[in-house]
């Protein structure tokens, strides 16, 4: 299990670094998909198989595809190159500082051992979503509907003066 985790974590981090480093945005979007695919594997090592399936369906299935479409629909000059701005050094310093602070706070703590792996999470999750968390569930559906209408309106150009 530990070896599987290290392999998947390595693929996730390397692919995420590829999103930042590859000069072509289309390649970066493919790396993005790979990173989220490997992250779904990490969810499997945590016994969250329903979330892993959702992750693959939504991120590598839907979001990566619309990102690839957006890359193809944008003008090629800047649209296809993965440039950095003048704040690159500062941004790197801020990110490294944040990572150092997080790691320095996380590692010394004595974390609890995991409980036994639960048999299946999909059935219990579905039941919880329709009983205890039914109001947030409906609100999430409403947010998705609003976002869908907004995305169509904005992308269609209805807001043109």
């Amino acid at each position: 299990m530990t070896a599987v985790f290290w392999f998947l974590a390595g693929v996730t981090v390397l692919a995420a670094a590829g999103v930042m480093a590859l000069p072509n945005v289309f390649h970066a979007s493919l790396c993005f998909a790979l990173s989220f695919f490997a992250l779904a594997g990490v969810y499997l090592t945590l016994g969250a198989e329903f979330l892993a399936a959702i992750q693959i369906l939504i991120y590598t299935g839907a979001i990566a595809v619309i990102i690839a479409f957006a890359v193809m629909l944008t003008p090629p000059a800047i649209g296809h190159s993965n440039l950095s701005n003048r704040q690159r050094l500062w941004a790197g310093a801020v990110a490294l500082l944040a990572l150092g602070l997080l790691a320095g706070g996380l590692v010394p703590v004595r974390w609890p051992e995991p409980g036994p792996l639960r048999a299946t999470s999909a059935a219990s999750l579905g039941e919880l979503m329709l009983t205890r968390y039914v109001v947030p569930f409906e609100v999430a559906g409403f947010i998705l509907l609003v976002a869908l209408i907004a995305a169509i309106t904005v992308a269609k150009g209805a807001l043109k003066p």
């Binding site: 974590a9 996730t12 981090v13 995420a16 670094a17 999103v19 930042m20 945005v25 970066a28 979007s29 992250l39 990490v42 990102i67 957006a70 890359v71 944008t74 800047i78 649209g79 190159s81 993965n82 440039l83 950095s84 701005n85 704040q87 690159r88 500062w90 941004a91 790197g92 801020v94 990110a95 490294l96 944040a98 990572l99 997080l102 790691a103 996380l106």
Partner: peptide, 21 residues
């Protein structure tokens, strides 16, 4: 691992010029 992903994303938000990235 989560912190590394978060910080890579933080770097990208601050430093990248392409809106899609």
């Amino acid at each position: 691992l989560a912190a590394v992903l978060f910080c890579l994303g933080l770097y990208g938000v601050l430093a990248k010029r392409n809106a899609i990235v």
